[in-house]
Design a protein around this nucleic acid. Sequence first.
DNA 1: AGCCTTTGACCAGCG
DNA 2: TCGCTGGTCAAAGGC
Length: 97
Amino acid sequence: MPEDGYEWKKYGQKFIKNIQKIRSYFRCRHRLCGAKKKVEWHPWDPSGYLRIVYEGAHQHGAPEAAAAPPGAQLQGGGASSNRYELGAQYFGGARSQ
DNA sequence: AGCCTTTGACCAGCG
DNA sequence: TCGCTGGTCAAAGGC
């Protein structure tokens, strides 16, 4: 579980045959928060390729650590239907930063 | 006691 | 209409 600065609660995990990847479903610890996060990775990939997909925006204060990851502070928009696709983020070793 | 994590089952949409 | 996939919720166990 790579920490991106926010607090998440895992509520599900399924293997998507369509892409042959495992997808974990995370939700913000606050029920009133419409922020969600999906992480998918290759179960047999020893590298550490993780695709973090952020959905929605946090409706409560965000931790200072949240300002660490690039592109994660796209809060300046609308809590309607903004999809934060941070694309392929590399955690666990391939981080250049 | 509270919180978090994990697995199975259920529901909805599509072909 | 049925089967399949994707997504979500609930319950149990451990720290």
